[in-house]
Amino acid sequence: MILSNDTKSKIGEYAKKYPKVKSAILPALHYAYEEQGYLDDSMYEEIAQVLGVKFIEVAEAASFYTMFPKQKRGKYYIQVCRNISCALLGSHHLTQYLLQKLGTKLGETTKDHLFTVVEVECLGSCCSAPMMQVNDKYYENLTLAKVDQLIDEWRAAK
């Protein structure tokens, strides 16, 4: 048992809204992700049980959608937009700067389990580029100074 009863009952509740229960797979994945910070097979099994859908339906769907990391990641999941509007304003530099500053590689988690840096496609914050999403939150119009300050804050907060 990985998912809490609370999450399971939220999933069950949300599923009632839909004309067909299978529609609730994606909301269920969100609830599981919200609680666990990542998704894996055992959660699919539990979701399938709660919803009364097939395990494979949950597993297939989860594998398709890329915003859910499929393994444990750092406390701060830094997703740097790599797409055109951000790239024109230095997002590739931003990624390199973050990796160097945190001493890690793309997709890997720092030893203190604080940070995982990944590159993602356009996050719809093009007019406030460059930007990154950290967990749920958008950080926009980034500058070196702003990034330094954020990292310091997160390290201090642990």
Binding site: D41, A59, T66
Partner: peptide, 16 residues
């Protein structure tokens, strides 16, 4: 049997 991932990574597999 299902198809997992997407794009050209799409892979045919039984459930995990």
């Amino acid at each position: 049997l299902g198809a997992y991932q997407r794009g050209y990574h799409t892979e045919i597999l039984p459930p995990p």
